[in-house]
């Protein structure tokens, strides 16, 4: 039992193994956990940058019952025995979080209507929860020179929130990282120096870890709003990866292939570029069934459950017929 510690978050207590972060403990409790835009469990060293997961530590531990002087990043701060954390119950935390969301949005182009990420965008969800309805920012928004980073991936630097996830992924998953953050401050940008440089078997995963629409699938560009396509779990025998993917279907066509994500939006198994980009024929795959996107996702809307207002459609169907 000595390895288990007790932490209380927003009045709910849970016992977690020593070394667990506040964020992970909150996710174990399973409700009202802090959002995370840069932290990513499968990637080491991520976190601490976006500051949306800041929480208030009202009591540092049983041994040291004092509060911590500043809000702390819950993704990096380890839980201590007897720690008391305030997340959504603290007005100070909510104010800070709203502030960070405002900061993330002042230079964001807000081009959701033409962005392929819309509907599965963490920043969109975050703004819905914590954003303001009108901007207070009257100055010009930041722009960047467009660069082509390769045949499969589209970079929109204006949408980037500099979470560094794609940098850590390239370090940890691919043989050699050829992109990174150049420049400083609010003109920092993700870049490759050499155009068309990102080419390796697992590079496509930077699309999946990107929380916004900065890195999107070039083969899927402008094909469909994500909520009009239907996700299916499918797998294939792949010598490079597990082959466990999600096929995004429009009618009988596969319009996009991604890795599978858990309910926190984190990739379960990274897939290779061959699975992602080269097998867009349904007969290449063993289709397991519809993927459960969770009730709250806009992708589920009008698919699994019917609104009462349209009784003409067959309610028993798993998907709404087109």
């Amino acid at each position: 039992m000595s390895d288990q510690i007790k932490i209380t978050i927003d009045g709910e207590s849970i016992e977690v193994p020593k070394g667990t972060t506040i964020l992970q403990a909150a996710r174990m409790i399973g409700k009202n956990y802090p959002p995370a835009m840069c932290y990513y469990t499968p990637l080491k060293n991520t976190g601490g940058k976006c500051r949306v997961c800041l929480v208030k530590v009202a009591q540092a531990s049983e041994a040291n019952p004092r509060p911590m002087p500043k809000l702390v990043a819950s993704c990096l701060t380890q839980a201590e025995h007897g720690m008391v954390v305030e997340n959504e119950s603290s007005p100070e935390v909510l104010e800070a979080r709203n502030g960070v969301v405002e900061f993330l949005l002042i230079n964001h182009p807000l081009d959701c209507p033409v962005c392929d990420q819309a509907g599965e965008c963490d920043l969109q969800n975050l703004s819905f929860e914590h954003g303001r309805s009108e901007t207070r920012y009257e100055e010009g928004r930041r722009e960047f020179d467009k660069i082509d980073i390769g045949p499969f991936i589209q970079l929109h630097m204006t949408r980037c929130i500099l979470c560094y996830r794609c940098v850590y992924l390239a370090d940890q998953l691919t043989e050699k990282r050829v992109h990174g953050v150049i420049n400083r401050g609010d003109v920092s940008e993700i870049s490759t120096y050499i155009q068309n440089a990102i080419e390796n078997d697992f590079s496509g995963n930077i699309i999946d870890v990107c929380p916004v629409g900065a890195l999107t699938d070039k083969t899927y560009r402008f094909k469909q709003r994500v909520w009009f396509s239907k996700p299916f779990d499918a797998h294939r025998d792949c010598p490079k990866c597990t082959g466990k993917s999600v096929l995004w279907m429009k009618g009988q066509d596969i319009i996009r292939i991604t890795s599978r994500k858990d309910k926190f939006g984190e990739v379960i198994d990274f897939i290779c570029n061959e699975c992602r980009f080269d097998h867009k024929e349904p007969h290449h795959w063993v289709i397991e069934g519809p993927r459960d996107m969770g009730e709250e996702s806009v992708i589920s809307a009008n698919k699994y459950e019917l609104p009462v207002v349209s009784p003409a459609v067959n309610v028993d169907a798993k998907f709404v017929s087109e």
């Binding site: 601490g48 940058k49 976006c50 500051r51 949306v52 502030g99 960070v100 900061f103 993330l104 002042i106 230079n107 920012y137 100055e139 929130i161 500099l162 560094y164 953050v181 420049n183 400083r184 401050g185 609010d186 003109v187 920092s188």
Partner: peptide, 25 residues
């Protein structure tokens, strides 16, 4: 400070530039 922010964390990266632009105005 706008010029010297490293750009790693959101409040400083975005906030320093915002303050500078408003003050310039």
């Amino acid at each position: 400070y706008h010029h010297e922010s490293c750009g790693q964390c959101s409040p400083c990266r975005e906030g320093t530039g915002w303050m500078e632009k408003v003050l310039h105005r």
